[in-house]
Amino acid sequence: MARRSLYEHFGGKDGLIAEVLRRSAEADEAAYVRTMAAAGEDPRARLLAVFDGIGEVIAREDFRGCRYLAADLALTDPEHPGHAVTREYRVRVTGLLEHELAALGHPRPAAAADQLLLLIDGALAAGATRPATDPAPAARRLAELVLAE
């Protein structure tokens, strides 16, 4: 499909960007679900497996960082539809984390989920900018502190 046809199909360049982000978000959220499911039934193991999975993602040759952070930084118009997609993605991932934290019996599952998302974002950013620092295992160790609260 030609570029013009793509833009027309999605209502313009902004719509195309938002759709690409939406499809990526669905795939990435499904990857979190698969990673946690593969870790078994223990919520602690499921949550920590997320950081192991991030380590695998960062180690890939084609890894270039978090696409949602990159989109939020690149899309300077605060009303760009891509921002709505990235916000909703983060809400859904936070919800997955909060669900596991509640199952773990964490005293503050919402706050802890926000902290874990911060660690995820930081690990992905560091993975792109400072991969030699091995950010996923470092974030996993910090996540263990959040879980132990």
Score class of each variant (00 low, 15 high):
E56F: 04
L104A: 03
T94D: 12
T35F: 12
L118A: 14
F51A: 01
P131V: 00
A84K: 06
V50F: 04
A132D: 15
H106N: 04
E88Y: 13
G15H: 07
P107G: 00
A139T: 05
E100Q: 06
E79G: 08
L147H: 00
T94Q: 15
T35E: 14
L96I: 07
D114W: 09
K13G: 05
R108D: 13
P43G: 07
E61W: 05
L101S: 01
A128T: 04
T35N: 11
T129K: 06
L69A: 10
R92Y: 12
I54G: 04
G122A: 03
D14Y: 07
P107M: 03
I58G: 01
A103P: 04
G82M: 03
D42V: 05
A126R: 11
T129E: 13
H9N: 11
A113Y: 04
I58P: 02
S5V: 08
A126V: 07
L75K: 01
S5E: 14
Q115Y: 09
A49V: 04
L119C: 02
T129F: 13
D14I: 09
L48H: 00
D72R: 07
R23D: 04
T133G: 08
L116N: 03
R140K: 14
V146D: 00
E61Q: 11
L97F: 14
A31Q: 10
P107E: 05
V93G: 10
E19H: 15
A139W: 07
V50S: 06
E144T: 01
E41A: 12
R60F: 08
R3L: 14
A84M: 05
E26F: 11
D14Q: 14
T133Q: 15
I17R: 08
T35Q: 14
R46A: 01
L6V: 11
Q115H: 11
G55D: 00
R108M: 13
D14A: 14
G122R: 02
A37M: 09
H80W: 00
A37I: 07
R108V: 09
G127R: 05
P137N: 06
L6I: 12
V57I: 09
P78G: 05
L96Q: 05
P81F: 05
H83N: 05
D28F: 09
A112G: 04
E98F: 08
R34E: 14
A45T: 08
R60D: 13
I120Y: 09
E88A: 15
I54D: 02
Q115L: 15
A128I: 08
G127F: 00
A30M: 03
R3A: 13
A37K: 10
H83Q: 05
L116T: 03
T129L: 10
G82I: 03
D52E: 01
E19D: 12
P131L: 00
D62E: 15
R108A: 14
A103Y: 02
P131N: 06
E19G: 11
I58T: 00
G65N: 13
A59E: 04
L116V: 03
T86A: 01
P78Q: 03
E19C: 15
A148Q: 02
A111N: 07
D114A: 15
K13F: 06
T76K: 11
R87E: 07
L97R: 07
P78T: 02
L101P: 01
L96S: 02
F10G: 10
H106A: 02
A59T: 07
D42P: 05
E56H: 08
E61V: 10
L147Q: 00
L97A: 14
D42G: 06
